[in-house]
């Protein structure tokens, strides 16, 4: 559950409403605040990670109106009225999403920093029905870098869910 929003106000701030993980959230943000910084600094949803802030690593992936996008290359004001799902909304420690469980079982992470982005990306890909073969899944997941080198375990976890092993 997001904490109450505390915003350092600015005359050019805009009122926006985001549906974050199913919760209607109203913010006042200046236009130059990225969706990523709004989530992390303003809504205390720090599960979404900042790895490069330039759209080059995928750690900040969130699901916006059903599509996976990079929250670092999105201004919060552009998403007024949108539905945003972050890793906190995918599942909780008590009720893990199948892909989260698969990530644990397949040891699909080490340091854990790219993990929320990988999972949001994987969930959105599976929901969209994209990626028929393992080769295609690898291509469609290539927007999420993993520096620890958990690549094969990540793809194994996704394929396991895709193949119905977690139903």
């Amino acid at each position: 559950m997001p904490k109450p929003v505390t915003i350092r106000d600015n005359p050019s701030s805009h009122h926006i409403t985001l549906q974050v993980n199913g919760l209607e959230t109203t913010l006042r943000v200046p236009p130059w605040v990225s969706l990523l910084d709004a989530l992390r600094d303003h809504l205390d949803l720090t599960g979404t990670k900042k790895g490069c802030d330039h759209g080059q690593c995928g750690a900040c992936t969130v699901i916006c109106d059903g599509d996976r996008i990079l929250s670092c290359l999105t201004l919060a004001v552009m998403k007024d009225g949108a539905r945003v799902t972050t890793i906190e909304g995918i599942g909780t420690e008590d009720r893990l999403h199948p892909l989260q469980q698969a990530f644990i079982d397949y040891d699909a992470f080490q340091c854990g920093y790219c993990t929320p982005g990988q999972i949001c990306s994987g969930v959105a890909m599976l929901d969209a029905g994209h990626g028929e073969s393992r080769e295609e899944v690898k291509d469609l997941m290539s927007g999420n870098l993993c520096r620890c080198g958990a690549n094969t375990n990540i793809i194994d976890a996704i394929m396991a869910v895709k193949e119905g092993k977690y139903e």
């Binding site: 996976r68 996008i69 990079l70 990306s121 959105a124 290539s142 927007g143």
Partner: peptide, 9 residues
Amino acid sequence: GATAQIRNS
């Protein structure tokens, strides 16, 4: 081109 995330935006 790019990645699925970028192509969505």
